[in-house]
């Protein structure tokens, strides 16, 4: 599906919830635990598939290797995020001193 910044997505197999921060202008197959993410919180069924079960952490940002897209995990869960079959990576942010 085509996504836009600000859209909230829910996992179908775990508690993971993400918000789209940045996506390219094309159809994306975004999944969690190997199962497509859904727009509305539906029934949770089954569990994450092997290889897509590393988990997500609340507050972390996830992007693809080329940094063409970015998602914010707003609730963590047992599944891992993937787009078009490839796992997303947790974006490693430089730890900054508090400035305000």
């Amino acid at each position: 599906m085509k996504l836009k910044a600000g859209t909230k997505l829910e996992s179908a197999v775990c508690d993971t919830q993400v918000m789209v921060l940045r996506v390219p202008d094309r159809d994306l197959d975004v999944r969690c635990g190997g199962v497509p993410l859904q727009l509305d919180p539906g029934q949770q069924e089954g569990e994450p598939e092997a290889g897509f079960d590393g988990g997500t952490l609340v507050g972390k940002r996830y992007n693809d290797a080329d940094d063409t897209m970015e998602f914010l995990c707003t609730r963590g869960g047992a599944g891992s995020l993937s787009v078009d079959g490839t796992l997303l990576e947790q974006k490693l942010a430089k730890k900054l001193p508090s400035s305000d």
Binding site: A5, G59, K60, L72, K95, S99
Partner: peptide, 15 residues
Amino acid sequence: HNHLLAYILGSVEFM
């Protein structure tokens, strides 16, 4: 909203 959120997400770690 996108300016302030970008600042927070880019500079503060959740919890």
